[in-house]
Simulated scan of single mutants.
Amino acid sequence: MAEIRKRLIFHGRVQGVGFRYRAKHLAGSLGLTGWVRNEYDGTVHMEVQGTKAMIYKLMEGLNRGSYISIDWIDDEEIPAEKESGFCVR
């Protein structure tokens, strides 16, 4: 399957609840690359790259977080990049 890259902005209770570190762990276990960071407006910004199926599994895993409450996600497909690993910024 072809790799895609998505820019995602998560709205809701996503800061101060372990969201970024859960994303890093899940992305690493799924073989995804990219990064995640908190924004000053209370959202979390993520760029993630991999197959569509693995990105979907990442989203499912994030939605299962006991303290995480995602209200909505801004989603945009962007050009793929050369990188290795997934990091918290």
Rank of each mutant, 00 (worst) to 15 (best):
M1K: 10
M1T: 12
M1P: 12
A2H: 11
E3G: 11
I4T: 11
K6F: 14
K6E: 10
R7K: 14
R7V: 00
I9T: 14
I9M: 10
I9F: 01
F10W: 03
F10M: 05
F10S: 05
H11I: 03
G12T: 04
G12E: 13
Q15N: 07
G16C: 08
G16M: 11
V17Y: 14
F19P: 10
R20C: 10
R20Q: 06
A23L: 04
A23K: 09
L26R: 02
L26M: 06
A27G: 09
A27S: 05
G28W: 01
S29H: 08
S29Y: 00
S29Q: 11
L30M: 04
L30D: 02
G31C: 05
T33G: 13
G34C: 09
W35G: 13
W35L: 07
V36W: 13
E39A: 14
E39F: 04
Y40A: 15
Y40E: 15
Y40G: 15
G42I: 06
G42Q: 05
G42L: 02
T43Q: 02
T43I: 03
V44D: 00
H45E: 13
H45Y: 15
M46Q: 00
M46P: 01
V48T: 08
G50M: 12
A53P: 01
A53V: 08
M54L: 09
M54E: 13
Y56P: 00
M59Y: 02
M59P: 01
M59F: 02
E60N: 06
G61F: 03
G61W: 01
N63H: 09
N63A: 13
R64W: 03
R64P: 00
G65A: 04
G65R: 05
G65L: 06
S66K: 13
S66I: 05
I68T: 14
I68Y: 09
S69A: 13
S69P: 00
W72R: 15
I73T: 11
D74S: 07
D74H: 10
D74I: 02
D75V: 12
I78K: 08
A80I: 13
A80Q: 14
A80N: 12
K82H: 10
K82I: 09
E83P: 02
E83T: 13
G85R: 13
G85I: 13
G85F: 14
F86Y: 09
C87A: 09
C87E: 11
C87S: 12
C87R: 11
V88F: 12
R89N: 08
R89D: 04
R89F: 09
